[in-house]
Design a protein around this nucleic acid. Structure first.
Lengths: 182, 182
DNA sequence: TCTTTGCGGTACCGATCGGTTCCATTTTTC
DNA sequence: GAAAAATGGAACCGATCGGTACCGCAAAGA
């Protein structure tokens, strides 16, 4: 399953056949189709699992970096330096699977909503009142930075997005430091 | 060739076989391979042609809307309402073709550079001094809005990006209206 | 008018696609 | 240790993949 995630992410969903998956994971063909109804089913399961892992990773990095909403962009910057970075798996999946009513699109939309909600929580904790609007704007910046990093291949886009986000916080927010201090 | 662009954009490059292209365009198989060395060659030619057409379209819309740098987001908003809108063809192509040294990635990078340069021109004409930085930030917003529109399917993301861009102009710029007035 | 050039159509190529079926073996469970 | 369950391997399925070769026809050039 980890093999599937790796292969699908680095080479694309359509580019990787079932044969490759079996060879990479050491799983037998029959065994595979006993666990998954189809390749599409595997893709959906993989994305659902990856959604959880991604958000766990994001939350871990953000808290490690201090918990400020802006640190999501630092996490993004780290991520864009990984070897084999290939952008957002969910955006890629949506781009590859054209059927908007497919499970892939549904899962991707749910993932983006979940991340948006997480960011909104960060904004609320930090004392911003426009948290809903800001969260949507943050998401747009995140997706923009990720898409840009796909071709620039360095942490530049994430940091660029961070400075834009800082502008937004500075103008939108009433007083981010009116929260309880130690 | 227009058929190829349509099919590749709406269904994805890997999802459309040569057979489909021939059937959709009425071109014979031999004829096709006399004009293009391979399917990849067709994809590259299509993207090169589309790059030009896209920029012509953008320039036309921007000038029609007044020529202000912010109008690129209005053009984007129009675009995201088209039936069959499927995001940025170049980002999609980069996401589908994993080989970063491929011609597809090269063409996509050149396209993004060309659009960035165009936006920088708009910023210069409007009197902004930070035109280079702002152009890169605009591009990030554009790609973010396009990626977001892929799942929201309405002009919302483009307008969201526009308000963010307006914030940037307001803070970055010295005085956008110090240019010659009629 | 005769020849050349380009065309669309078709048959065909090996390879791979996603998926099914069977089998022999290993692992689990009791 | 026997019975049951799950496994990996391989053969096989029809369909499609990208690509080649050859065909007969139609337009174009001389």
């Amino acid at each position: 399953m980890g093999a599937a995630e790796e292969l699908f992410y680095t080479e694309g969903i359509r580019a990787v056949g079932v044969e490759r998956l079996l060879a990479a994971s050491g799983v037998g063909r029959a065994s595979f189709y006993r666990h998954f109804a189809s390749k599409d089913d595997l893709v959906a399961s993989m994305l659902r699992e990856y959604d959880i892992r991604y958000r766990e990773w994001l939350a871990e990095r953000v808290t490690a970096l201090g918990g400020d909403p802006l640190t999501v962009f630092d996490a993004l910057a780290e991520r864009s330096e990984w070897t084999g970075f290939r952008g957002c798996a969910f955006v890629n999946a949506m781009s590859e699977i054209s059927d908007v009513d497919s499970e892939v699109h549904l899962i991707a939309a749910q993932h983006k909503n979940a991340v948006t909600n997480y960011i909104e929580e960060l904004l609320i904790k930090a004392g911003y009142t426009d948290h809903s609007t800001l969260a949507a704007e943050f998401m747009l910046l995140i997706d923009g930075a990720t898409a840009t990093a796909l071709r620039e291949r360095n942490p530049g886009p994430a940091l660029r997005a961070k400075t834009i986000a800082a502008h937004l916080l500075a103008s939108h927010a009433p007083s981010p430091t009116q929260h309880p201090s130690p």
